[in-house]
């Protein structure tokens, strides 16, 4: 049941790489054999977020060019069993890999892994097309703001035309307090607009910044709100029924939240 999943967003800075790292870590900890591919050639970041930047010898482009074997380029995580990184090249451009090469690479990885997670570059050009070419399914990451949702809509259209299925949505960096005040799009608004299935909602969480500083994805050892959210997504990915957190459950719950609950005006 090996699965190749592309993580994409259209807009940059919405948390694709953080999401990829955390899902890869969570899936590996749950016992699945996982490889995370950094398809953002020229702007690699997944290595840093995973804390594996010092152990890179070869890159994705070296594999495609035949400069090394696939197994030589895979960086094994020493903290958990079953987690590997295939890093991007930092000194090449996005056109260093063609879609057919990327597809062949993903297909080769299927033989050895349960999950192949492809971290796509932002944008809708060649880099995205490459990243998506080897994937069966897609996770679209957005934040609840206008420009990110608009770009997500565009990317969803392209993923549909590329026959990716299922295409599921992650709403990242939701700020529960702002949603409660009516000053941020709620998950229901985003779903109304984008009309695809939701697989997870991740609240804004300062721990994401500190975890990236340390190179330790939250799902390695944290129980912070974002860590729980990412962990839930990884469980939904393998078919578990995990209830979605309500906005009010994402923080300790303020005064207003309690009043609303008491009055039955939840949400």
């Amino acid at each position: 049941m090996e699965r190749v999943i592309v993580l994409t967003s259209g807009k940059g800075g919405v948390g694709k790489t953080t999401t990829t790292a955390n899902l890869a870590m969570a899936l590996a900890r749950a016992g699945h054999k996982v490889v995370a591919i950094d398809a953002d050639i020229g702007l690699r970041n997944l290595d840093v977020v995973l804390g594996l930047e010092n152990r890179i010898v070869y890159s994705l482009v070296d594999v495609v060019d035949g400069a090394c074997r696939l197994k030589q380029a895979l960086v094994k995580d020493k903290r958990v069993e079953n987690l590997f990184l295939l890093p991007a090249a930092q000194t090449r451009t996005k056109d260093a890999v063609r879609p057919d090469q990327m597809k062949a690479l993903c297909d080769e990885l299927r033989a050895d892994f349960d999950f192949v997670l492809v971290d796509s570059p932002a944008g809708i050009e060649g880099g995205f097309q490459n990243a998506a070419s080897g994937a069966d399914e897609a996770l679209v990451v957005t934040t609840p703001d206008m420009s990110a949702v608009r770009d997500a809509d565009r990317i969803i259209g392209m993923l549909e035309s590329l026959d990716k299925h299922p295409i599921r949505l992650i709403v990242n960096r939701l700020r529960p307090n702002m949603v409660r005040e009516g000053n941020m799009l709620d998950v229901s608004d985003v779903l109304d607009i984008l009309a695809i299935d939701l697989i997870g909602v991740v609240p804004e969480d300062d721990n994401v910044v500190t975890s990236t500083n340390k190179g330790e994805p939250l799902t390695l050892n944290s129980i912070s709100p974002a860590a729980r959210a990412f962990d839930n997504i990884s469980r939904r990915l393998v078919g578990e029924e995990v209830p979605f957190l309500e906005v009010d459950d994402m923080t300790s719950g303020g005064f207003m939240a309690r009043i609303r609950r008491a009055l039955g005006l939840k949400g």
Binding site: D153, G182, N183, D189, L265
Partner: peptide, 30 residues
């Protein structure tokens, strides 16, 4: 929710954002 909005005068930019987005996407999609 509208009761609390009126009572506390909290923002309504969520609704504005949703309506604007829906309009923008009509053009984008079409």
């Amino acid at each position: 929710m509208s009761f609390f909005k009126k009572l506390f005068g909290v923002g309504q930019s969520r609704q504005t954002a949703k309506e604007r987005l829906q309009l923008v996407l009509i053009h984008d999609r079409a």
